[in-house]
Design a binder for these strands. Structure first.
Length: 421
RNA sequence: GUGAGUGUAGCUCAGUUGGUUAGAGCACCAGGUUGUGGCCCUGGUGGCCGUGGGUUCGAGUCCCAUCACUCACCCCA
């Protein structure tokens, strides 16, 4: 019996971990530049949190969650996204009382039981940010600017920002009615799933991918023309501030966020360098969620982005992270006595902060030097019976092939000085 | 859940109308240097050809089933 990884999961191996670490470091850096603080919430929560937060009717909740019952017979779920958990933590820890605005970010694994394909896994990673406590258009723009700044930091140029407004409780139902009125005479020409969407969720018909449905909805009333006064003012101001920030975008009346909690601003960043799953990042305002989850009414805006999808486009633009940490010193002992010396010396050198590797296979000198070369060590320290007797080591510079005899007593300071020069 | 494609060495892949002991490159190991890496030369280790069944004198090759992976639909980051 050979075990294999669960469908839709991946191992991130040493050969690619440098890329992940570098990407995460850059994300941390940009998040910090925008004055966001990291938050880490549990990987699982009460099932009800997601059901209420994301929406019972969404596919995520109705068929994609990893839900199980623990020994106390409580229903738990591996988080399918992070906003609900962050908002739960915001409420539970009274963060709204500590600060007027909380700016939080995360880079974490999430879980959805979908069929895997390019850019879609069952365990994947999202990074994202939430601004909780500000109703201001400037907050919307800060979230959008942050997500763009991150992609720019990776030297990504080919992406498109799509923007829309999905209104609020005042104007959404009236708009849905207008949309239904427009669609009713065309209903039988729509695809089957759109016919089902008609009553429950007519907005979804707008982003149907069927060519025929798109043709039918081409002239449909657009939400941004039917916003209530408050939403229209908000959207107008968001657009002014985006212009002030020098952010270009495309209005897309078909853009409807998949999760129920969004209000007003909705946006998405897409790339033509991905497969069919072309969304790099999706976000928007969710002024109703905090209250929905039992907190005081609190406006919020944020986004979530797919880490693996970022990695996919980074591969395409050949983004090369600078992270590479070869050992500085490779200890090559020959024989049992020298191995004892090497174990002791490795301790001392590592305590001095040097990255030290030593052979663990009792190999011959030739094999050890090959290994040191493979690992791109700066120095190889060769010690055999001769050197033990003479109380000095042979320090070989792998690049120049120069060898120096260094007395054991001077070895640490010699390597420290040489490795920094 | 649905559809299509692909499963041969650690990796990338050849393998003729079915025909002997299944190959290459890279990687790994050893020798060429009795204690000296990279480059080069020589050699070597490593395969239940995804799994099970069937057809056949004979199956990596044909048929059926099954599993896995990939891509796509749906949905979403």
């Amino acid at each position: 019996m050979r075990f294999q990884r669960i469908k839709g999961t991946r191992d991130i191996l040493p050969e690619e971990i440098g890329k992940w670490q570098a990407a995460e470091a850059l994300i941390h850096q940009i998040m910090t530049r925008f004055a966001f603080s990291e938050i880490r919430t549990p990987i699982f929560e009460e099932t009800e949190l997601f059901a209420r937060g994301i929406g019972q009717l969404t596919d995520i909740v109705s068929k994609e969650m990893y839900t199980f019952v623990d020994r106390g017979e409580k229903s738990l779920t591996l988080r399918p996204e992070l906003t609900a958990g962050v908002v739960r933590a915001f409420i539970e820890n009274n963060l709204g009382k500590k600060l007027p605005v909380n700016k939080l970010y995360y880079i974490s694994p999430v879980f959805r039981q979908e069929n895997p394909q390019a850019g879609r896994l069952r365990q994947f990673h999202q990074f994202g940010a939430e601004i909780i406590g500000s109703p201001e258009p400037a907050a919307d723009v800060e979230a959008i600017a942050l997500s763009i700044a991150i992609y720019r930091a990776f030297n990504l140029e080919r992406f498109l920002v799509k923007l829309n407004s999905v209104g609020d409780t005042v104007c959404r139902e009236p708009y849905k009615q207008k949309l239904r009125e427009f669609l009713r005479p065309r209903l039988r020409r729509l695809c089957q799933s759109c016919q089902q969407r008609f009553e429950k969720n007519p907005l979804r018909i707008l982003d149907c991918k069927e060519e025929s449905c798109r043709a039918e909805t081409l002239e449909a009333p657009q939400f941004i023309d039917h916003l209530c006064d408050a939403c229209a003012r908000h959207f107008g101001r968001v657009r002014e501030l985006l212009a002030a920030a020098g952010i270009t975008y495309e209005l897309d009346f078909r853009l409807v966020r998949g999760l129920d909690y969004y209000t007003r601003t909705a946006y998405e960043i897409i790339s033509d360098q991905l497969g069919a799953q072309d969304a790099l990042c999706g976000g928007g305002r969710y002024d109703l969620l905090v209250e929905e989850l039992g907190g005081a009414p609190t406006p919020a805006v944020g986004f979530a982005a797919g880490m693996e999808r970022l990695m996919m486009v980074l591969d395409q633009i050949a983004w090369q992270p600078a992270i590479h940490n070869p050992p500085v010193v490779f200890l090559a002992p020959l024989g049992p006595a020298a191995i004892a010396w090497a174990v002791q010396t490795a301790q001392q050198l590592r305590q001095q902060g040097l990255a030290v590797e030593m052979d663990l296979l009792n190999r011959g000198l030739k094999a050890q030097l090959r290994e040191a070369n493979r690992q791109q060590a700066k120095f190889t320290v060769i010690v055999g019976d001769n050197e033990l007797r003479a109380q000095h080591a042979i320090v070989r510079d792998l690049q120049s092939s120069q060898q120096t005899e260094v007395a054991f007593n001077d070895l640490i300071s010699y390597l420290q000085q040489s490795s920094t020069s």
